[in-house]
């Protein structure tokens, strides 16, 4: 940095920089600015393509009741599936992270971590294949049992799906997909717990679980929350696994998790409808994509804020 000699200096001068340096610095800076432009472009082009759906007569929009009425049930389905996934994945992910960082023999830990990371590498369409062919059929007896015995709870009101293509199955598949994300971030913060904290707890005569409760979990809490939020963002935007697994009908809003009639999600609805859509239909789908973009943006910004706040704290330690 030959630049910035603040004006306080009586002898401050313009920096001398050679041509190569100016070119290279300018190019790399340009690449950074390009990223800003791309992101602005994503928002801009989506708005341009979504706009006709808002101005068109309500009857022309698919569904016939305007763009808001079209997107609202999809938004509900998206949120339901993602929250379900989060509820399933977070406890498991924290357990896995604890196992790898605190319980597993140190020599095994890295290999076990790699095994869990493999889950993150599998393409989402393959999860769809697995969900529909392996998981869903194995869950149908369970759904029938739930409908019979716990049917009084609205979540399990039934009638139970005979194919297993339900919101519950989607939640499980999405849960498996986001588990490695949540677990990776939890693992990272658990590893950063200062060994002084841990040893202090152990020196007081704590058992391993007490040490974890006193030292590891409080230290890692915001990491877990941030990781869970990142996982939530991923689950919200997941497309093909949902498109393949879920048996969805348009315009439904229901908390019934095990029936054959489910609300669709924004992303999977786009994937299913887009290839056959034209005209205002495309604009409506882009408008729903815009809604998804805004939603995931909000979740991710919040998640980053939580994770980054923690890293500032840990810097002081």
């Amino acid at each position: 940095m030959t630049s910035t000699t603040p004006s306080t200096g009586s002898t401050s001068r313009a920096p001398v920089r050679r041509l190569g340096d100016r070119l290279f610095a300018g190019t790399s800076r340009g690449a950074g600015i390009l990223i800003v432009l791309i992101l602005a472009g994503v928002a801009g082009f989506l708005i341009v393509q979504a706009a006709p759906a808002f101005t068109a007569p309500r009857a022309d929009v698919p569904g016939g009741h305007g763009v808001v009425a079209y997107i609202a049930p999809l938004l509900f389905g998206t949120a339901l599936a993602a929250v379900l996934a989060l509820l399933i994945a977070t406890p498991l992910a924290v357990g896995v992270a604890l196992f790898i960082t605190q319980f597993a023999p140190r020599r095994l830990a890295q290999g076990l971590g790699y095994l869990v990371d493999l889950l993150a590498a599998i393409p989402s369409i393959v999860y769809g294949f697995w969900g529909i062919a392996w998981l869903a059929p194995r869950l149908t007896p369970f759904y029938a049992w739930l409908a019979d015995h716990l049917g009084f709870i609205p979540l399990f009101a039934g009638p139970a799906s005979v194919t297993g293509k339900t919101m519950f199955t989607v939640g499980l598949v999405l849960g498996v997909m986001i588990l490695p994300i949540v677990s990776a971030i939890s693992r990272e913060v658990f590893l950063q717990v200062p060994s002084l904290h841990r040893e202090a707890a152990l020196a007081l005569g704590a058992t391993r679980w007490e040490m974890i409760r006193m030292a590891v979990l409080p230290y890692g809490r915001s990491g877990i929350i941030g990781g869970a939020m990142l996982g939530l963002g991923r689950a919200l935007g997941e497309t093909l696994a949902v498109a393949i697994v879920l048996s969805a009908s348009g315009g439904i809003v229901t908390f019934n998790l095990i029936s054959p009639d489910n609300p669709s999600t924004i992303a999977s609805n786009i994937a299913l409808q887009f290839p056959e859509s034209t005209g205002i239909g495309v604009n409506t789908l882009v408008a729903s994509g815009l809604a998804l973009f805004v939603l995931t943006l909000a979740v991710n910004v919040l998640a980053r804020a939580i994770v980054n706040r923690r890293s500032q704290f840990s810097g002081a330690n």
Partner: peptide, 12 residues
């Protein structure tokens, strides 16, 4: 010295 951001000198 001036490789660090903000670092500078006065004098000769």
């Amino acid at each position: 010295h001036e490789v660090l951001p903000g670092a500078h000198v006065e004098g000769k």
